[in-house]
Design a protein around this nucleic acid. Structure first.
Lengths: 211, 211
DNA sequence: TTTCATTGTAGTATTTTTACGACAGGAGAT
DNA sequence: ATCTCCTGTCGTAAAAATACTACAATGAAA
């Protein structure tokens, strides 16, 4: 049987090690690389590539979503399983739209991880039942859309960084953008969400469990 | 050799499973229980108890710190190793004060986890080198009073206004003081509470129900 | 009683943030 | 095809925040 090459992207070493041990139980999977840095992930996929990328969304700097899109662009055949800390509904939809094959949270059991992996290995998609329900339900009831869902990906990314208390300068460095650019995103976020200051951004983010 | 009973408290199942696999490598340790819910942890220690509690601070509801104190009260002989997502030295200090025997982050390697476990199993304490340094440089804060209780009245007043998102200019107008004055209070607040930005002030204030 | 930390207050010099305007590329609508 | 909105990007000028330094009054400690 051909082994499937898996790359682990998660910024917590302890978690990567745990995942490796879990994956080691099945001979079908072999971990060929791992890293906690977005850039490493991109580097690796530029050069080597793997069958499956297990990707944590919460890496520092460049957002997980960015990495996802990048990998999908340079190696479209890569299957990506997103592993997030956040309760499903916040990000799941965006990641699926961006090309992920599956989305599970760190609250999942390892059986669920395996199920998801097997499914996407065969070319399928995997989302938890509860998430699937929510997504279906949402199509119909547009009304209870959270305000921040109208933000573009970039805007949401900036919003979260701002909410974490990063300064514009830090963010612009991290993303290699001009501070003006960050500032423009900020303005748009304030406008779209009808907020007035970073303080309100933080409170909004805390209330909506974005951070 | 007597095995040491370990209880795992972390709200991410996947992480608990990873930890179990890692711990399984050493016969000295045996995982006797696990849970992602603070209340379960407390229940367990009310009834059974274990030698070591590996505790994630970021559990939902009742804070990890709460759990820590509770367990220490009902079973003071329990050794507690705190496993946090946050690099924040802020938390570290409080957890140690609250009775934890060690503090490591999820960025640690599993070797570090083992080192920490062995050390505290023998009755020692473990903090990472970098953290130890930081703690040395910091001045002592008295017992278990809330950090913000060391603020002077004026400082607390300013802190609350800042936490509400008021700008220095607004505050100085409101109080008929120079913005410089407000700024000085702010600096002192940051120093006393060991915070670094307004964002942290806001989070601190929300967490401590100051606003 | 001298010393020393704490508090309330402010000025100055830099950095940062902010408001605003600008522009190009893509997607949808007409 | 053309128009228009949205997105991603940036620059500039003005406003605000920040890091320092400073100093007097109070009060506690030695």
């Amino acid at each position: 049987m051909k082994q499937l090459k898996i790359f682990l992207a998660d910024d917590h070493l302890l978690i990567r090690e745990g995942l490796k041990k879990i994956l080691a139980a099945e001979k079908e999977f072999i971990v060929v690389g791992e890293s906690g840095h977005p850039d490493d992930v991109i580097d690796y996929f530029n050069k080597e590539g793997a069958d499956i990328l297990i990707l944590d969304l919460n890496m520092p700097g460049r957002s997980g979503l960015d990495v996802l899109k990048h990998v999908k662009r340079i190696k479209p055949e890569t299957k990506i399983l997103v592993l997030s800390m956040y309760p499903e509904d916040q990000f799941a939809e965006r990641t699926i739209k961006a090309g992920a094959s599956g989305y599970i949270t760190k609250e999942s059991a390892s059986e669920e991880l395996m199920k998801a992996l097997h499914k996407i290995a065969k070319g399928g998609n995997y989302v938890s039942n509860s998430l699937a329900e929510k997504l279906l339900f949402k199509k119909k009831i547009v009304s209870d859309q959270k305000p921040h869902e109208v933000l573009s990906d970039r805007e949401l990314q900036i919003m979260i960084l701002l909410a974490q208390g990063k300064t514009q300068v830090e963010i612009s460095d991290e993303l290699s953008l001009s501070t003006s650019t960050i500032n423009t995103y900020r303005s748009r976020i304030l406008e779209k969400l009808n907020l007035k200051s970073n303080a309100e951004i933080i409170r909004y983010a805390i209330q909506n469990k974005l951070i």
